[in-house]
Amino acid sequence: MESQNNNNNNQEKFRDPNLDKRTVISPDGQQIEVDPLQDYFEQARPQVHKPASKVIEKFLNWARAESLWVLGFGTGCGSIEIPPLTTPRFDAYRFGVAMRPTPRQSSVFIISGYLSVKTLKRAIRSYEQMQNPKYVIGLGSCTINGGMYWDSYNTINRLDYYMPVDNYVAGCMPRPEAILAAFESLKKRIKEGRADGANKYAEHFDWYKANQKKVIKDWNMPDYNW
């Protein structure tokens, strides 16, 4: 009960007037009620999607595994090791790994290290905008148990409380070779049909949401942003 109150207080405190409901008058004189939160976001819950039938799913998984599109969102220190990955020395492209500038087109989200609360909010949005199936790789100690910033007031400790993670890589920072190894491991997981993070997220949606909301005090967006 107390936490409920607390939450409400928070929402009052961090209310963004731009996101309030308002009435606008259309050019033809009609009054239209606009709810920006509804307008900008879709609020349907994520759904569990069943895999296709066996053989087809196997083929699709193979295609998915060999064509990993990575969201280029440098969330932490680890983003410094992403350029070497995509440049001559390590050239991840030859392993079917490509960088994409937008979450919608990406299938792999590399959380490259620590997530501050402010970034977590964006990371969740980005993750939710990625389409099923999607995979998450956690780089470095920070995603496993807080790493260097385990006692910081502004960084999360465990990534798996906020989104399902497929693979973790040890290191601070993991070298590009280790990240490539993570891709190989992820490929194996996908081909075996075990990489089902998106469905897991949909199944345990309430639990994830509760964790996210506990951390993000100014939750001024709908629960699910696509």
Partner: peptide, 13 residues
């Protein structure tokens, strides 16, 4: 602030 880790606070500890 997206990368704020509170270093200067952490140094206290």
């Amino acid at each position: 602030g997206y990368l704020h880790r509170g270093f200067e606070k952490l140094f206290e500890r």
